[in-house]
């Protein structure tokens, strides 16, 4: 089956790697969204009147009708659990000592991916209200990590 007949235990290889560092621009809507998190502890979306659709995170345009969207709305910091998973592997593929609960939390007509905290697995249900827990104001930098996790609301 193989083209080369030689000892498969001693193949010659070369290893290489590349440092990859890039800058990612938030853009107009992204900047509004992350400034609201950082400065006000708020989650904002953008509303397309024509499609009656609230984008969370806020978007500068409507992906349904492609109109520019300029109505910004505060959607609150409590959303609903749409789906969740318990992740047993880390970013590099290594087994996690402590598995993490990851969820998609519905907010407006969109939502956010985040980890869940202050929660037991057996109390989770689809549709349960979840509240964003923010870092203290002085520690927030304008990133998704300004939200530490979502926890059961109320």
């Amino acid at each position: 089956m193989t083209l080369l007949e030689r000892d498969p235990k001693s193949p010659l290889t070369w290893s290489g790697n590349l440092p990859v560092t890039s800058r990612y621009t938030f853009g107009l809507a992204g900047e509004k969204f992350f400034r609201a998190i950082k400065d006000e502890g708020k989650i904002i979306g953008s509303y397309c009147k024509k499609c009656d659709h609230t984008y969370v995170p806020a978007s500068q345009f409507c992906e349904k009708c492609l109109a520019e969207v300029s109505d910004w709305v505060d959607v609150g910091t409590i959303g609903e659990l749409h789906t969740f998973t318990v992740l047993y592997e880390g970013y590099d593929g290594a087994r996690l000592v402590q598995p993490e609960i990851v969820a998609f939390i519905s907010l407006g007509d969109g939502g956010l991916i985040h980890r869940l905290g202050e929660i037991n697995l057996d109390e989770i249900y689809f549709g349960m209200p979840l509240e964003a827990v923010f870092l203290p104001e002085g520690q927030r930098q304008g990133s998704i990590l300004d939200i530490r996790y979502f926890k059961p609301a109320g």
Partner: peptide, 12 residues
């Protein structure tokens, strides 16, 4: 911007 900073294995 939205997902990668959370550092989840993509199988999530």
């Amino acid at each position: 911007i939205l997902n990668r900073p959370l550092r989840f294995n993509t199988h999530f």
